[in-house]
Amino acid sequence: MMQAIYQAKGLSKQYGHKTALDNVSFEIFPGRLVGLLGPNGSGKTTLLKLSAGLLRPSAGHVFIGGQEPGVATKTITSYLPDRMALPVEMRVDDVVNLFADFYKDFDMVKASHMLADLKLDPRQRIGTMSKGTQEKMELCLTMSRAARLYLLDEPLGGVDPAAREYILNTILRNYSEEAAVVISTHLVEDVERMLDETLILKEGQVLAHRAVDELREESGMSLDEYFRHVFRV
């Protein structure tokens, strides 16, 4: 029996009186591409931040490779935040060196190739790039790691449709085999084809956690249609 790389057990998070996540439990197995779907405010970012160890749960637990978020889980988790987190005053090669310094699984050659494809000058400062380029660069760094779990928060967030293809291709080409990938997005149509399973959140609760093929077969709808159906106003 394969071991789950990721487990959430009764995970809850409250911000003051507001409940962002409510008793969420699920497991993710290696080798799976999981779409974390839900409208804005459904708890996607909170779930990923809890998993990355940037938030502490109000109740329940997260286990990554059997451990709660900490130094051990951070060495095997590659996390792409929903915002630009690279220091704007740093240069491209400074940031690459920083990743290489801190992450043992960082593939310098891979990263250099990807950044060269983006036509980035190693001495360019992050702050002088366009927002789209910054996001692509951040994704390249995230995907240059041979992690066991990738947590990608809205990788398609602020980029134009042309760049979406680039981003999805980068993810598909570079995640290490046997790793699990969690992609949060509300652009269901764009990611539908690449997902094994979907975890749909609604108001902080798991509405569905299913294999995408299964769900399509049962509902007779594409995942995108299903999503719209569930969340129609």
Partner: peptide
């Protein structure tokens, strides 16, 4: 497989 999957933008397992 992985290259084809990336080209087509589909899941490698599929």
């Amino acid at each position: 497989v992985r290259e084809l999957a990336a080209q087509a933008g589909v899941n490698p397992n599929t």
